[in-house]
Amino acid sequence: MEALPENDPIPPVRLYRINAGSCNGCDVELATTASVARFDVERWGCRYSESPADADIVLITGPLTVRVRDKVLRLYGEVSEPKVTVAVGVCPISGGVFRDSYAVVGPIDRYLPVDINVPGCPPHPRALGAGIAKAATLWRERCGYTQPSPELASPGNYDGDAVAPTGLRGKMRFNAAACVGCRMCEHVCAGGAIRFDETDTGLHFTLWHNSCAFCGLCSHYCPTKALSVTDEWQMSHLQEDKYRLVEQGVVSFVPCTDCGSILLPVAPELLRVAYRETSREIERLKTLCPECRQKQSIGGIRR
């Protein structure tokens, strides 16, 4: 598209919302970006439109249910090109906690091209604002506007705006050194966001943030707090990075100091939970495999 004259005023970017079967969390939060001053999308040069035909950016919430699919696709089709599509919340991105239900047909990118993902459950209004600002920038680029976007010209840009919300349940962090490999986190995760892969070298942990409900239950049940909740809320990303938004770590196997067979190292956090204080004897026992440990403690005494 040809670049427009430089001193033309930038028209507001028009947003249209589609609910594809959500729990309404993302929708109620999007409503605050139209009604609450501190989150208002006007600051990004945007406004909401009541009609898909008068929209530039489509915001889609929900996991895409089988029953709503045709309605969503029809509305999406009514938005004129060029348009930018934003998947709001983890449901449209990965199905979230609803994935693999007989009534859910998403992720949404199986049916339409997504440009930007805004993970969260639901995302904070500031995270929504950040995603919308990115989408607006992308839309202006596609239309050939050369002036700087309002959000970049204004002092508080979308990445570092004001104070980050305090105590927010954001991205999870994994500390491999504290992991005991009990897999309780994987067991309690409603979103199926955690997996372990065992190789010759160790136990590999992967958490995909785009499937995480940010509930922190994994951390609650983690005996050594190898998983912790951070307040990182800024996670909106381009579609090409969808599958790269992960937290990974490896708990490397160590050889038993006696027989040489491989074992998961005992995390110091576990020793603290179990014994409060460690001694030389405990430190020595922890380097042994269960069999050798048994031999040396119980078996040793018997002999």
């Binding site: 491999a176 892969d197 190789t199 590999h204 992967t206 599958y243 790269r244 992960v246 990974q248 490896v250």
Partner: peptide, 8 residues
């Protein structure tokens, strides 16, 4: 898993 390797 295809886009991220095992080493983190």
């Amino acid at each position: 898993m295809a886009q991220n390797n095992h080493t983190g």
